[in-house]
Simulated assay, not measured.
Amino acid sequence: MIREVIVVEGRDDTVAIKRAVEADTIETGGSALNEMTFKRIALAQERRGVIIFTDPDFAGERIRKAVAQRVPGCKHAFITKKEALAKGDIGVENASPEAIRHALANVRSEMPSPDGQPLTWNDLMDAGLAAHTGSSERRMKLGEILGIGYCNAKQFLKRCTAFQISREEFEQALRELNMQHTPNEDD
């Protein structure tokens, strides 16, 4: 049984979560979050902790951001768009039980800035993650490696800070990304 309550968007997401793990959920009803839902999430956070597990799309990210802003200290679970895609539909409800368990085993906690040297905008630029051809795809793949999901460059930097991605962890993930995508001599 997962101790924390998992915040999902809808009933189908709850069904998918319960197929994968034993857990309690709170459904947001999509992006139609209301005060009562926020109060239930805040109470769950206070008593048991909360894991936000929304779809890897614009609406899911908007819900994730709204909940995290109103209920500080939540943990975050992410799946990739590929893991969430079925018949042109993106959603947690489409993810395999294995993908859901993997995401829940790799939750991230929001914390203050990491110790040491925090990542900077220049780090993202130097890594080809911002303002470069293909930077969006590189951020998507690096977000998968780091387990922080896909987002724009500004949000990527914020997530790296919020989830305490160390410079060492960032550089290791970047090496892994670059090894995956090293062009062949035939290219």
Rank of each mutant, 00 (worst) to 15 (best):
Q69L: 08
S96V: 02
L146S: 10
L174N: 11
E35P: 13
I145Q: 05
G29A: 00
T80G: 01
D55Y: 00
K82L: 03
G60N: 06
A77C: 00
N122Y: 10
R139N: 12
L33R: 12
H102R: 15
R101I: 06
N34P: 07
V92G: 07
R62L: 09
C74H: 06
A162M: 13
L177V: 00
G49Y: 00
M111W: 15
H132S: 15
L104H: 14
D55R: 01
A153H: 15
T54C: 07
M1I: 07
H76A: 04
K154A: 10
A77T: 04
A16G: 09
F38C: 08
V8P: 14
A68P: 04
V67K: 01
R167M: 10
I63M: 00
F38P: 08
V8A: 09
K65I: 03
G134I: 01
V8K: 04
R11W: 08
G49N: 04
K87D: 15
E83P: 02
T28V: 07
R138V: 03
G147C: 04
W121F: 14
K75M: 11
F170E: 12
V15I: 14
I79Y: 08
T25G: 10
P56M: 02
E168D: 12
E169N: 08
T120A: 11
G10N: 10
R40M: 10
N178Q: 10
M125A: 14
E4C: 07
R62D: 12
N94F: 02
L157E: 01
F53V: 00
E98A: 08
E169K: 08
T25F: 02
T28P: 09
I6A: 11
K141T: 11
A84I: 01
A95L: 03
N178F: 02
E83T: 00
A153Y: 14
L157W: 06
G10I: 05
R62T: 11
L119R: 05
L119Y: 13
M1H: 11
G143N: 04
V92M: 05
V7K: 02
Q180L: 06
N34R: 15
G10W: 09
G49D: 06
V21K: 08
I26H: 04
A59D: 13
E144Q: 13
S113L: 14
S166N: 05
L85M: 11
N122V: 12
G149K: 01
V67E: 07
A66S: 15
N106K: 11
H102F: 09
M179W: 03
K87W: 04
C151V: 08
I63N: 00
E137R: 15
K39T: 09
E35N: 15
G73P: 00
D55V: 00
D55Q: 02
D12E: 14
D24C: 04
T54P: 00
L33K: 06
L146V: 08
